[in-house]
């Protein structure tokens, strides 16, 4: 494959990785001060910081490839230029984060748990990436993934095996996340080129690993799900997004774009 084909595959993959972590960390951080109890608030925030830190590492790799400044890439692109999965941009619940947010903890636990399971599988594959800076980043990020996964696994198992009310909320959240989780597992329109360039393994291979892993978790809490994860609202890797992303980005970039003359913040 030509240099420009390979370069396109590489930047597309890096945007997916960066944008996934960026928007996911943002949704998590909106919980700051509002989690079910104070100790969890503190613990959850560390996970969001780590994840935002991972996004910053990927944006830096894009900067090194000449795509522009990391802060511009994260704060100045148009919504259709983002490559994150749609399920990750979804609001935590109805309401603004400052006014009567009706956040759903079950949805948050499920989305974070599924995401961290898939993220670990993806990182294991990226360790073998032909692009050395990416494989090195993957190795670093993996060191933080163990405790993130442990955190959500504890929440998942406990809420799934507690009261009937909690079980019902958790199952509803599983179905909701499953409907769009295919969007996290896909490599998007340039997936074949990414695989050809040796950047990452085939998405079908990764997807199988994920579903097998999830089946084990489901069995451990006596839950069954026979369908594959879907992509009902479209492919974020292809630039398809919901109004939730646009709304989030206008908040995230409000200050950064407020003064065109500003050299520093």
């Amino acid at each position: 494959m030509s240099f420009s084909e390979k370069n396109k595959a590489m930047t597309e993959l890096l945007y997916q990785l960066a944008d996934d972590d960026f928007i996911h960390a943002h949704r998590g951080s909106e919980w700051l001060g509002l989690a079910p109890h104070i100790e969890e608030d503190v613990a959850f925030s560390s996970i969001n910081q780590d994840t935002m830190g991972h996004a910053a590492m990927y944006y830096k790799l894009l900067e090194d490839l000449g795509e522009g400044k990391a802060d511009d890439l994260s704060h100045r692109r148009k919504p259709e230029q983002y490559r994150n999965a749609i399920i990750l941009e979804e609001r935590n619940g109805s309401g603004e984060y400052l006014e009567s947010p009706q956040y759903d903890w079950a949805f948050t636990v499920i989305r974070h748990f599924f995401y961290d399971v898939s993220k670990k599988i993806r990182l294991e594959s990226l360790k073998q990436s032909s692009y050395e800076p990416l494989s090195e980043a993957a190795r670093k990020i993996l060191t933080e993934q163990y405790y993130h996964l442990m955190h959500w696994e504890v929440w998942f198992k406990q809420l799934m095996t507690s009261t009937a009310k909690a079980r019902k909320k958790m199952e509803a959240a599983i179905f909701k996340v499953w409907d769009d989780f295919g969007g996290v597992l896909t490599l998007g329109p340039y997936g074949d080129e990414m695989v050809k360039a040796g950047l990452i393994e085939d998405e079908e291979v990764l997807k199988t690993r994920f579903t097998e892993r999830m089946q084990k978790y489901f069995q451990s809490v006596d839950f069954k799900l026979v369908t594959e994860p879907q992509m009902k609202r479209g492919d974020g890797r292809a630039g398809v997004h919901t109004p939730d992303l646009e709304h989030a980005l206008s908040t995230l970039s409000e200050v950064y774009v407020s003064d065109a003359e500003a050299a520093g913040w």
């Binding site: 109890h37 104070i38 100790e39 969890e40 503190v42 613990a43 925030s45 560390s46 405790y147 442990m150 955190h151 504890v154 406990q158």
Partner: peptide, 20 residues
């Protein structure tokens, strides 16, 4: 010290509450 509903939760809370 911290408040948590059980040992497993206490452990995942302890790490980030006191060893950031």
């Amino acid at each position: 010290s911290l408040l948590a509903p059980n040992e497993e939760m206490a452990l995942i809370m302890a790490k980030e509450n006191f060893f950031r």
